[in-house]
Every structure is written in structure tokens, then in C-alpha cells.
């Protein structure tokens, strides 16, 4: 997949070594364009601060990427003794947030510890687990944490249920099960407030890489909490976006995706065997409204590799 895309969009242009050779379009821009998406990207070397960006300071909708900030606040509250991560929480079958993975797809009452709910939230983007945890820590607390870290554009204004409800209401359908169908219609997609960064959970590519870099440098919380967060981000199962750009056994990829109609995101950290580590945040909106767009998913990985390749040119 990656090779096919690189062949199609990148004939003989070196994005890193000869930036002046091609006066035309930024090669990352061409990757996004040929995948039928608009892209926003920021990548930074966690240790030396070198950076690459494309519309890196424009506000973007986070979708499920907001779960990273929620996970951080969960651990900060545990550090302060406000909650116990091993505390068991009952999640009744009757009250599940939709989403198709994890508890949302399970049929029976469940009891899990807070930290295992956090695992489901990060590994398979479990919306039910996220809403249980957000209700527990409070969205004001998450925003206060973001203020404290200097991430002032990043805001968590909605939980997953509110996000999904807004899709149903804006699409004008009575039932949640009709949302997928309705959102294949470009006119419906055009009026979804869930895709408006002024309304929905939001950030910028640069603020997300700052957050990740702080987590990887043990600055966002205590070292044990940051290690626990890094562990969960490495356990995310999805191979199709950021990880697809790095199909190499000796490269570690950790990340968190976010998905809404036409919107495909992933933020994460890529770690090379020589010790280089790079935070990267990629946000895309597809022009087409089809749900299945593997080229759009893979463009996230391809563009991320291009950005990191540029950061590594000095090696």
C-alpha cells in the first residue's frame, strides 16, 4: 500500500534532501491530494525539537483523539489520590455509548477496573469506556489540565455520546442505526456540527505533538503515569493509518486514532532503532463521503513517514 502510494505521488522528488529541487507542491500535500483528502500535519523530534508542519496551527476536530487528554487527566487524578486506578466500575448493559468496539458492542453487564476501561478506550477506541472515565474525571478537569500544560486551543467540550447524538440530530434521522447511511450523503456531511472545530472537541496538530512529546519526556505527569500512558498507546490495535507508513519490525509505533464521517486522524509517536523518536499528528478530511477509503487511511502513514524522514535527514 505505502509503496503504491509513494510510486503514484512521489516520482523522484526528495522531500528531505533536496527541498529546493521541486518548486511545486509540497510532497506531503501531494500524498494527501492523491488520496482524496485535505491534510493537517505536525511532526517534531522529541529530543531536539526539529519540526515539520503543514497547516500545523489550524484548529482541527479531534474525534476520538481527545481520549489521550482524558487518559492523562485520569492518571494525574490517580497521582493526587483522587481516584484509584484499580477501583472496579460496573458498566450496565442498558447504558452503553455506541461505537462498534469494546463495551459498546458487548451485550452483558460488565465490571472492570478504571485502568482496564482505559485500556479498552485506547486499544480499540471504546466509546463506552471513554464516557465512563470522562464522567468520572470531569471535562472541566481535563480542560484545566490542558490549560496547565499551555495547550490552550485544545478543548474537550463533548463526550462520545454527545458527539454521536449530534450526528443523529444534524443528519435528521430518528435512530442511531440510520446515521451511517445518512452520512454517506455529502449534503448531510456538510451540516454536521461534529465536524466543526468551533463546536466539537478540538486541538491543533502542533498542540497534539506537544502533548505527546511531554508524555514521552515524562513531563506531562509523573514518570510512572507517563509510562502507563505510553504502554496503552503502544497497545492500540489499528494497523491501517500511522503504523502503515512504518512497516518495519524495528520501528515502534504508538498512537490514537480518531474517526468521524469524512474525518480520519491519528496522533502518535514513532521510535527508530537508533533511538530517534518523533511525535506526529495527522488530521484529514476526505472529499468523498465513502466510509471505506483505505488510501485515505494509508496517506496518514505515508505523510507521517515523509515528515519524519525530513526530521532524520541530519542523521
Amino acid at each position: 500500500m505505502t509503496r503504491d502510494m509513494a510510486r503514484g505521488v512521489n516520482p523522484g522528488v526528495n522531500p528531505g534532501v533536496n527541498p529546493g529541487m521541486n518548486p511545486g507542491v509540497n510532497p506531503m500535500e501531494r500524498v494527501f491530494r492523491s488520496a482524496g483528502v485535505m491534510g493537517w500535519l505536525h511532526a517534531v523530534d522529541i529530543d531536539d525539537g526539529r519540526e515539520v508542519g503543514l497547516r500545523a496551527d489550524e484548529p482541527v476536530v479531534l474525534a476520538s483523539v481527545f481520549k489521550v487528554a482524558l487518559l492523562l487527566e485520569l492518571h494525574r487524578q490517580a497521582e493526587r489520590g483522587l481516584l484509584d486506578l484499580t477501583e472496579r466500575v460496573r458498566v450496565p448493559a442498558a447504558d452503553r455509548t455506541g461505537g462498534g468496539t469494546g463495551l459498546a458492542a458487548m451485550l452483558d453487564d460488565a465490571t472492570l477496573s478504571l485502568r482496564d476501561l482505559a485500556y479498552l478506550m485506547m486499544a480499540v477506541s471504546d466509546n463506552t469506556a471513554a464516557d465512563v472515565l470522562l464522567a468520572r474525571v470531569g471535562r472541566e478537569a481535563v480542560n484545566a489540565l490542558l490549560d496547565g500544560l499551555g495547550l490552550t486551543v485544545t478543548r474537550v467540550t463533548q463526550d462520545c455520546r454527545e458527539m454521536l447524538t449530534s450526528l443523529r440530530v444534524d443528519a435528521g434521522v430518528a435512530d442511531q442505526s440510520a446515521v451511517n447511511q445518512a452520512c454517506a450523503d455529502p449534503e448531510v456531511v456538510a451540516r454536521l456540527s461534529a465536524l466543526d472545530p468551533a463546536v466539537a472537541n478540538r486541538s491543533t496538530p502542533r498542540e497534539m505533538t506537544r502533548l505527546l512529546a511531554m508524555i514521552w519526556r515524562d513531563e506531562a505527569a509523573g514518570a510512572a503515569s507517563c509510562a502507563a500512558i505510553r504502554r496503552l498507546m503502544a497497545l492500540q490495535v489499528w494497523p491501517h493509518r500511522l503504523a502503515s507508513g512504518f512497516p518495519f519490525d524495528d520501528v515502534a509505533v504508538s498512537g490514537k486514532t480518531g474517526t468521524l464521517p469524512t474525518l480520519r486522524n491519528e496522533v502518535g509517536v514513532v521510535e527508530y532503532p537508533d533511538g530517534g523518536r518523533y511525535a506526529v499528528a495527522v488530521f484529514t478530511r476526505s472529499y468523498g463521503t465513502a466510509q471505506n477509503q483505505p488510501r485515505a487511511d494509508a496517506a496518514i502513514g505515508t505523510a507521517a513517514r515523509m515528515a519524519i524522514d525530513q526530521l532524520r535527514t541530519h542523521i
Binding site: R3, A6, R7, P11, N14, P15, G16, V17, F248, D309
Partner: peptide, 12 residues
């Protein structure tokens, strides 16, 4: 096409 990359992986 691989000359587009500043560093190449064996898998490439």
C-alpha cells in the same frame, strides 16, 4: 522512487 527518502529501510 526510493530516492525520495532521506533514509531507506531494508523492507523498502
Amino acid at each position: 522512487e526510493l530516492t525520495a527518502w532521506a533514509t531507506v529501510h531494508l523492507g523498502d
